[in-house]
């Protein structure tokens, strides 16, 4: 048991094995990911962050926001909604099939669905039900679609429409996925809270907008100064105990604006192959749109 070289060799082998498993293999698998064309929005995803949101990401990193906030949405399962997309020519047959698929429907309801297709027949069913119903409608002329809906506590909390996957972080540098939820998840915060002023107030003093918040205030991202000739249009609308002294106003620094711009850019607004869901939003809202131009 005193063979130093043998010991060295075994350490080297173990080292190489763990390096291959968790460095080389992920890099080979995921390192060459590229943007993908998303047909629903006709653009490439993900888009590289532009403008001051890039600086905002840096402010986020420097302030250590990642110590309390994750940017990853978990999904524990999925269910389906079955939609009759096209009734076809044999409406009587399809109506009876619709009733067969969903026993709770009255004749009238079934006829309504067939007459007004596309319409949902069943909600929240499993993959097996989907397959059996698809078999039912085969060759009937009627066409059904199964729309997948992700489920899970994070999704029920409204933290995102689907789970996040590797592709979502393609342009983050560094990737700040986080591991602690002392604060809520931020992967989709730009869709949930799209109001710039809300974010600025929240950063200046979280208790102004969220009464029970335990988030620390970030007063150093703001400048309290004397009102000049006229109040600045950028000044925060602070009331009551949070308001600055008479004759003073609170102005966000460029860092605060950048951070807010970054937070607004955090959005999950369409499906990817790894995490399918039914895309319902028509278009992302306009102001964010300009920052999310495709990287072509």
């Amino acid at each position: 048991m005193n063979q130093g070289p043998l010991l060295f060799l075994s350490v080297l082998c173990a080292m190489a094995a763990s390096w291959m498993g968790f460095v080389l293999m992920p890099q080979v698998q995921l390192g060459n990911q590229s943007t993908r064309l998303v047909k629903e929005i006709g653009r490439h995803y993900p888009a590289e962050r532009g403008g001051i949101a890039v600086k905002g990401h840096d402010v986020y990193r420097a302030a250590g926001c990642v110590s309390c906030h994750t940017q990853q949405v978990r999904q524990s399962g999925f269910i389906f909604d079955i939609v009759l997309t096209d009734a076809g020519d044999f409406t009587d047959l399809v109506t009876s099939l619709v009733q067969q698929a969903n026993g709770d429907l009255s004749d009238q309801q079934a006829a309504d669905i067939v007459a007004n297709a596309p319409k949902t027949i069943l909600e929240g069913v499993s993959k097996q039900t989907v397959d059996s119903i698809a078999f039912l409608f085969k060759d009937s002329g009627g066409k059904v679609a199964a729309n997948i809906r992700p489920t899970g506590p994070d999704i029920d909390r409204g933290w995102g429409p689907r789970q996040t996957v590797g592709l979502d972080y393609l342009f983050d540098e560094p990737v700040l996925m986080g591991s602690q939820r002392i604060g809520p998840d931020l992967a989709d915060v730009g869709s949930r809270l799209a109001d710039r002023n809300w974010h600025l107030l929240h950063l200046y003093h979280p208790r102004t907008v969220v009464e029970k918040s335990i988030m620390p205030a970030y007063p150093y991202l703001f400048e309290t100064r004397e009102i000049g000739d006229s109040p600045s249009p950028d000044a925060l609308a602070l009331k009551g105990e949070f308001a600055p002294e008479e004759g003073m106003e609170v102005i966000p620094t460029p860092e605060a604006n950048a951070l807010v711009e970054y937070l607004l850019s955090l959005r999950i607004f369409h499906p990817v192959f790894e995490a399918p869901y039914i895309f319902t939003q028509a278009e992302p809202s306009e102001n964010i749109d300009s920052e999310m131009e495709p990287a072509e």
């Binding site: 999925f78 096209d86 993959k127 409608f137 085969k138 679609a145 199964a146 997948i148 192959f273 039914i278």
Partner: peptide
């Protein structure tokens, strides 16, 4: 399984 549950009509 992932490719099976992609959204789309049965006649896709």
């Amino acid at each position: 399984m992932v490719s099976d549950v992609q959204p789309g009509s049965s006649d896709d």
